[in-house]
Design a protein around this nucleic acid. Sequence first.
DNA 1: CTTGTGTCCTGCCGGC
DNA 2: TGCCGGCAGGACACAA
Length: 275
Amino acid sequence: MPELPEVETIRQTLKQLVIGKTVESVDVSWPKIIQEPDDVEQFSTFLQGQTMHDIRRKGKFLLFDLDKHVIVSHLRMEGKYGVYDHNDEVMAHTHVIFHFTDGTELRYRDVRKFGTMHLQEKGMETTKKPLVLLAKDPLEADFSLQTFKEKVQKSERNIKNILLDQSVIAGLGNIYVDETLFLAGVHPLIKGASLTDEQVIQIKQAAVMTLQDAVRQGGTTIRSYVNSQGQIGMFQQQLNVYAQNDSPCSKCEDIIMKIKVNGRGTHYCPTCQPI
DNA sequence: CTTGTGTCCTGCCGGC
DNA sequence: TGCCGGCAGGACACAA
């Protein structure tokens, strides 16, 4: 499940492969992925003749900048992009193909079909869903610690749930929330309202460290990992708690626990993250 | 207003 | 062996 670091790695790699290319046509075989416009035919016709100029990232969203439009794309759990030659075999679960005029293709694959694409007018993307309520991610220079602190401390929800809320802090998913709370030494079930200023600052710093570290790892491994199929992959960084349940904690040797928090698998160290 | 629940979708896993 | 129910998960619509 791609979170901020994975999306950032995909962005950097994909950018090299599609910038300057012009869309000749678009095929969509699972229309539900296209959330906007309502008519999938329009998605295709609007894109024809437009050139890819940049790929940006906002939180876990990828933004493809074209001449007049922006494609706002979310990979959800299993979405993947790859650039292929038009003669390459189309792999299973390919749902959207952007054919370029140079004979290459940008293909979107997604086993679960949970991913989404919104085609919006250039410049309008931050004024409407899905981006309108999206918070800053903690790696952005203008991330406001003050705003973050206020949102956290006025909430009765548990901190795990708060950190998954993209309107509070963008970019964290289930894996990096668990890693962030471990690094901050905060138990996932503690209510936002009962966290001290120091704890909230710790959490923000831990999020920055966790995400930076992961981006760095994606950045170092990505070079050798764009295969001939045009697929972009990456190696999983070392995780302290996520999927480490029943193993000893890397800090204190206590056994990592796995519980459910709001329906999400949640991993923590009972000693390093006291209730 | 805030918080909780259902929904989408399919591969996988455990139980029988 | 093979079937089948249940589960996982990000974000949103809707309910309470």
